[in-house]
Design a binder for these strands. Structure first.
Length: 232
DNA sequence: GCCCAGGTGGGTA
DNA sequence: TACCCACATGGG
């Protein structure tokens, strides 16, 4: 189990196609990326449905809407005050700096887009990479809590107190996924599927995991702490 | 009632 | 750099 391709093969065979990211447009994907922060996707779906019902899902409408109304619409996704602020900041920034064109934004080099997104409030590494990978079609791998947890339990990554663990894990996948961005998209989606089923915090061990038995929870799982690959 | 969910930002030593 | 903590709803 020393190559991302092995993960891909096992998980793909077990779960099949994931059809990610759920969303009808690039903007909707970006909205979902913010709404899902530390939030179950089910609650995000409720929020997006409510945004659609109120005709607030478009960038223009979201930007023009009173903060109170936007908050009410996304309430089900939790953290609704800050998320409403983040959404409007993003919408305003796209309008002000890219002429309201996501084409223009994502036409830039990956590193440039990523830096710009990270400079916005409420957009950290995972959210930026989700937007890049699924809204922009850029090869920027998404490292989320499930990714970290799975790699830890399978001994691929070691907890480390210093350094940029996110980048280390990202590089590990990037080096082994090839050029097909669709494969990058599928890889992350499969990891989330596996995480939800086999690698929840409350699942101590599971011999049915398609990647093989998981280590007992709590032995190496340190949640959101930084990580580095073993050779680091 | 308690734990968890596809994180991020701000504060402290 | 390395921890803390707030942020908030809905489901198991």
């Amino acid at each position: 189990m020393a190559h991302p391709g092995v993960y891909y093969r096992h998980l793909s065979r077990h779960f099949g196609p994931q059809y990610w990211w759920p969303g009808n447009s690039r903007w909707e994907v970006m909205v979902g990326a913010i709404l899902t922060q530390n939030t179950a996707w089910r609650n995000v779906e409720l929020a997006i449905a409510e945004l659609r019902r109120r005709h607030l899902l478009s960038r223009a409408a979201m930007l023009a809407a009173p903060a109170e109304e936007l908050r009410a619409a996304i309430r089900s996704a939790g953290f609704y005050r800050q998320k409403a602020r983040y959404l409007q900041a993003l919408a305003a920034w796209v309008a002000d700096h890219h002429g309201g064109s996501l084409d223009r934004l994502f036409r830039q080099p990956t590193g440039r887009v990523r830096a710009e997104l990270l400079a916005l409030p409420g957009i950290g590494p995972e959210t930026a990479d989700s937007m890049l990978l699924y809204a922009g079609g850029h090869a920027s791998f998404v490292v989320d809590a499930y990714t970290v947890r799975i790699l830890l339990r399978h001994g691929e990554a070691a907890a480390q107190g210093s350094g940029d663990g996110y980048a280390a894990i990202q590089s590990w996948f990037a080096a082994g996924l090839g050029r097909d961005v669709g494969r990058w998209q599928e890889m992350h989606a499969l990891i989330v599927a596996a995480g939800k089923e086999f690698c929840r915090k409350t699942v101590p061990r599971c011999t049915a995991c398609p990647l093989g038995p998981l280590l007992p929870a709590g032995t190496a799982d340190v949640g959101h702490q930084p990580f580095a690959s073993r050779e680091a």
